[in-house]
Design a protein around this nucleic acid. Structure first.
Lengths: 144, 144
DNA sequence: ATAGTAATTAGAATCATTCTAAGGTTGAAA
DNA sequence: TTTCAACCTTAGAATGATTCTAATTACTAT
């Protein structure tokens, strides 16, 4: 998949909110923009830092993120390495690689992955809805 | 892999501690037993509940679990659905299926999975150390 | 306008986990 | 046996991310 630009991503988040009857308030807009402009895998606290400069409260950030999460347009990404919950704006099938040395996170796209996970789930008689795949190792820079 | 019996598992945890120079104190023994007898995917709080009946403190439980985690003999299993960290006593390659309705957790063994993840990591120039794969869906009982 | 609902907010509350400081246990050396 | 240092355990305090509360403000439809 092509890389999505920040403004495109922000509009997509807002569109999803409106589509489900949530009003596109200035505060929600600011949170969506901050999420989209982050570039990586933001935490709620990081977004709070950014938008509080515009007078937006912490509760609003948490509310908006929780709403976006319920709509399935962002995904919480629980890691062993971080005390904050990080969010993934990319909800297409992929795995997240986390460097155990420098902590950097890389999205690795792999269309065949979800298929395999769905197959494994079906052998247990279960259905597949979503997945959270995290791989730990050394990134290209740190492995040397 | 055959299912490991609780006493076998407990002895394995203790052996690993001793092997790395940790003394097999009665408290650590109790924690290892409680972990092994839990059967599923215990949280620290659940173990605290069990062993405090024998006068063992919360700090000791957290200390012992952290030690076992560092030795790689148990694995933290961060989930979206639980505010406690659950631990996986099974460190062989497998994925964890979580029923989004009833919350039950099923270990699904899939030897080919880690191989695929390692391959995907290598396409990003990274090395594979460990993985945490969680799949959400409906379990056999809840899907009807 | 005005009523009713949705949204925002500061600050308090919650609660899992970690830290602290004090006391207990162990084992080996003198 | 005595000593000593390192290891262990523990109650309770501290931390800190997230959630809750209660009050205010901003829309929307009539």
């Amino acid at each position: 998949m092509a890389i999505m630009q920040p403004d495109e991503r922000a509009r997509r988040l807002l569109r999803e909110l409106e589509h489900h009857g949530y009003r596109p308030t200035p505060q929600r807009e600011a949170v969506c923009w901050a999420l989209a402009r982050h570039g990586g895998h933001p935490t709620a606290a990081e977004i709070v830092e950014v938008v509080k400069l515009h007078g937006i409260g912490q509760a609003t950030v948490y509310n908006t993120i929780t709403t976006l999460e319920k709509l399935g347009v962002i995904q919480p990404m629980p890691l062993n390495t971080d005390e904050h919950t990080r969010y993934d704006l990319d909800t297409t099938p992929h795995m997240n690689f986390v460097c155990s040395q420098c902590g950097s996170i890389i999205d690795c796209h792999a269309p065949q992955l979800d298929l395999m996970l769905a197959q494994i789930a079906s052998t247990a008689g279960a259905t597949f809805e979503s997945a959270n795949v995290v791989v730990y190792g050394r990134c290209e820079r740190c492995k040397n």
